[in-house]
Write a protein that binds this DNA or RNA. Structure first.
Lengths: 156, 156
DNA sequence: GACCGATTACTCGGATATGTCGTGTCCGAGTTCTACCGG
DNA sequence: CCGGTAGAACTCGGACACGACATATCCGAGTAATCGGTC
């Protein structure tokens, strides 16, 4: 079970955009340069965030991305779902209905106990992610990191 | 983020082995037939469970797998870790240290706030998984399923 | 000097190759059961 | 009839192909700033 690297990139970009300010616009190329990432691929993740309504995009010269909402209103769960997709990590393929030991249909009215347990665990994970917002990350990070990011943007 | 299908297979096999009894031995081929799975590949997952000390394997005719411990002492987390591997889904690649906006080493003494948040979420997931045991799943499942499994094993 | 228009350069956005890991399959080492042979 | 032994069949275990998804890249459509020309 491996999470896409784009999630880490997307989160760092959201935090940086939060520090820079919701009204300022930063291009993919510039964000990629800041973190030493491949620009064309980072663009893919930022697109996903834009589609999810987390980022707002503008084209043309002086175009780029900005936060579509205040950082306090963006949860980590939203970012993860936007990039990873919303489907659960554990997918019950209902093998209890297959093979020699196949369960009769009546027995399968109730969801599989295994699937329920796995779903509960993922729910706990998602709940924890939904408690944390981009704003909280901005607060927890060192003040120097925020200041450096703002300076870096000003020297564009 | 997608979990290996082997996790579902391994969990179902553990529950079935729990119902059948810790002293009874069932071969990979038979378990595969019960769930309609490819035997050779299922064997791979069962091997992983054996390496982790969850299952005990025996070779030769009348050989196969059995639970190495009472079902109440096997958590879902152990099964998931045995098959999926223990490394976290989110892996921080420390991109804050790269590119134009690279953070100085002193600033990186503390772990990345993003990585911490993601780690906390995964911890909640793992904690929830460690609360559930194979025995609990056995209890939650329909009694008819347990009985059918026992009968199926007896008619070997 | 101010306004308008064409041009240009830069942006996002999606369609296109490549690498890695999960999926699936195969064959070999080891062990136990069985059948046969000898006592 | 009983014990020992050789054989055979069945098991796990790990090494070997295939396919799907994440990774990485490229090019095109669109837009806004800019430069030049005209009023």
């Amino acid at each position: 079970m491996r999470m896409s690297e784009g999630v880490e990139w997307g989160l760092h970009c959201c935090v940086a955009l939060g520090w820079i300010g919701q009204d300022e616009v930063v291009s993919t190329a510039r964000l990629a340069a800041k973190f030493g990432l491949p620009a064309a691929y980072l663009n893919k993740s930022l697109q996903a965030l834009a589609r999810a309504g987390i980022l707002a995009s503008s084209a043309g010269p002086k175009g780029g991305f900005r936060l579509a909402r205040p950082p306090a209103r963006i949860t980590l769960l939203e970012v993860v779902d936007a990039i990873e997709g919303q489907e659960a990590a554990f997918r019950c393929s209902e093998i209890r209905r297959n093979g020699e030991g196949a369960a009769p249909a009546a027995e399968c009215r109730r969801p599989c106990a295994i699937a329920s347990a796995m779903r509960d665990a993922e729910a706990a994970w998602r709940k924890e992610l939904s408690r944390q917002t981009i704003a909280m990350i901005m607060d927890k990070a060192p003040r120097t990191a925020a200041e450096r990011t703002v300076r870096w943007h000003a020297y564009a």
